[in-house]
Design a binder for these strands. Sequence first.
DNA 1: AGCACA
Length: 451
Amino acid sequence: MSSVSSQTQFRYAQPPSKVLHLRNLPWECTEEELIELGKPFGKVINTKCNVGANRNQAFIEFADLNQAIAMISYYASSSEPAQVRGKTVYLQYSNRQEIVHNKTTGDVAGNVLLVTIEGVGARDVSIDVLHLVFSAFGFVHKIATFEKTAGFQVLVQFSDSETASAAKEALDGRSIPRYLLPEHVSTCTLRITFSGHTDLTVKFQSHRSRDYTNPNLPVASSAMDGSGQFIAGFDAKKQEPESNVLLASIENMQYPVTVDVLHMVFSTFGPVQKIAMFEKNGGFQALIQYPDVQTAVVAKEALEGHCIYDGGFCKLHLSYSRHTDLSVKVNNDRSRDYTIPDTSIGMLNTQPSILGQQPGPMMGPAAVPHYGGAHPFALAGNGIMGGVPAVPGYAGVSHQTMPPMSMQLPNNTYMPPPPGAMPPAMGPGMMQFPSQSGQQPPGTAMPSYRQ
DNA sequence: AGCACA
């Protein structure tokens, strides 16, 4: 307590400043609009928009104090209020003398993203789903999740800031597809900024942190911290010896699962080298070979328990095979070797009717980081919630490079989305995923973020 | 509709 009180001010009557504080601005007001507004009164040398919790406040800084005074005076006596896009804007002197751009975080592009997930039950979004979502843009090195006052937050580490920027650009403000979420979780909107971090420290593979660059990292067993929910889950499963070859058991196979379908599904995570299908005690199984263990691990994590088709059909159960190299002697409808150069031709010839797809080792994320990443959603967690089918080519992915998938099956529950359904430039508020499934009414899928 | 991530 000192003698500041001699300067008794009315709470909102600020002394003049060349910085003006504006409020009640329209959503996503631009710097240009602010400059337009101030221009008649002087030279606007700095602005800061989207300020405050509602992001509807801003500051403009004039070159000269008199210019700021001119603007305030004008609108103080004007019958027409200051307006932006027809919305009345309230002006006053700022309590600061200059605009400070706090660029410490959030605006400086880095390779690590800070993601805040808004939504009821957001903390129940699994790390695997997050991995899936962000893998669409490139290799995800590490993920760490934590809870702060801001809510459920996630740090996602990419190789470089370009990749991170691409992910941020595409996903900020969008929502995780409904069918990737547990039912009790509401629409989860992603708010993304750049983190100041460049390399995360992940000590354990756990339900809240992963290091995808280090498969040998110990799995946290009891090392989970106190917030313990349903911890054990997949952490236990990870103990089994990993392999580059996955054994897939297909449960409830009401619809044919072809080698091509499997190839499509598993190519999402990297190049598939070989596939062999066979029947075992009445059930269907397949071996899928990747070039490396790591890819297999990612694929297994992402696909385990998911269904290829809506309605719980063709549910995948994955384990690691003891094989490391499958011997595929002949390419037929049960086995395929994609490492043999002209396999693809033979494949198209043998199975042209179903797919007409480009077979492709080139479809792996590793090979085509920017677009390839889109695939992780192909099969995406529909299985988790018995949701939507695997339909590739969602988020702005060129349909030339992603031919319609093998969902043209006897099952007409879903078809590939119509060409116009997923424009490359997505509308506000949503990652564009097919919502043909009756389980995902468009209304819930496409919340409006505009006001 | 009220001051800038604490």
